[in-house]
Computed example of a mutant assay.
Amino acid sequence: MSEHLIPKAPDLEWLDDGVPRAPAFGDTYFSRAGGLAETRHVFLGGNGLPERWAGREHFTIAEFGFGTGLNFLTTLAALESFAKTQPAPKLTFLTFELYPMTADQLERAHAAFPELSDQSARLRQLWQPVSGWTKLSFGQANLVIGIGDARELTGGLVYGEGEDLPQTAIDAWFLDGFSPSKNPELWEADLLARAYGLTRPGGTLATYTSAGWVRRNLQAAGFEIAKQKGFAGKREMVAGWKSV
């Protein structure tokens, strides 16, 4: 493998409760109040999932910031549970990460979520991040991960039907970069406008942040947005949609 294809892993601090923190961004990878519960509240609930999977043959989710993979693992577990009672769509989960964790870092982080131990073990077994695009298969779901700067990688994507890049049509966005004040690159107007262009009419978004300038960038991109009740001690979060 060419050395230049091996991405840089993040430098991490591990807090007393086992939560990883990125000193470079001054933020944790998931909520100390309960990362799994937050993902379910903000990203699944904020996008109307799993209810929106009913009757769909294909469904595409995209996120900025793969991190520990918690959002993907939570979604995969929900999809597999959904499939036990009714037909489930083929899921494409498209994600971006500039500094992918090592398998050892993932294992340590995943210890906080024993409920997802089956899904997380499968992810780590396949985990060999290299720069550029990689597709990993999880049966009913495909994880398509772009290792690199999301602002550059999204430039190669084109709106369109189907599962294969560069054509894609996003049904739901999980906007989950580090705090906007610490990681403004993932919340900038141009990137959010590109996200809007890749979104299917009727597609949705959800994010834990309700920062005013992020809301304005989302609206400027074309999304309709609304505040909703936040998770745990957070008063508000934001959900949005692309009008049909």
Rank of each mutant, 00 (worst) to 15 (best):
F72I: 01
G67F: 02
S31N: 10
G35Y: 04
A33N: 10
L49P: 13
D16F: 02
D118H: 12
P129F: 06
L15F: 05
I6G: 03
D176M: 09
K8M: 13
A189M: 09
P89V: 06
T60P: 03
A150M: 11
M1P: 15
Y208M: 01
G139I: 08
T39A: 15
P7Q: 06
T209I: 06
F25A: 14
L198A: 02
P87R: 13
G160V: 12
S2Y: 08
L73E: 07
G55N: 05
A189Y: 07
F66I: 08
R194S: 13
P87A: 14
S181P: 04
G26F: 05
A33G: 03
A239E: 01
D27L: 08
L106S: 07
F96M: 06
G34N: 01
S179Y: 13
F66M: 10
L198R: 01
S117L: 04
A220I: 02
G230T: 00
A206H: 03
I61G: 12
G132P: 09
F43N: 13
A221L: 10
E185D: 15
E107P: 05
L44T: 12
A150C: 08
I147D: 01
G69H: 08
Q228C: 00
M237K: 00
E161I: 02
G67Y: 03
T134Q: 15
A109C: 01
P114T: 07
E97Q: 05
A169Q: 15
R215Q: 13
G233V: 06
D17W: 04
T28W: 03
T209H: 06
E163C: 06
L5Q: 14
A111C: 10
V42C: 00
R124M: 14
G160M: 10
E115T: 11
N183C: 06
P7W: 08
A77T: 03
G69I: 07
D17A: 04
K84H: 10
N71P: 14
F43P: 12
A111N: 10
V214A: 07
A62V: 13
A220F: 01
E161G: 13
Y196I: 07
N217A: 15
Y159W: 15
G48N: 09
R215E: 02
G67C: 04
L49G: 12
P20W: 03
V238F: 00
D171W: 09
G46Y: 00
G69R: 04
L165C: 13
P20R: 04
F30V: 09
A78R: 08
F30C: 09
L73C: 14
A103R: 14
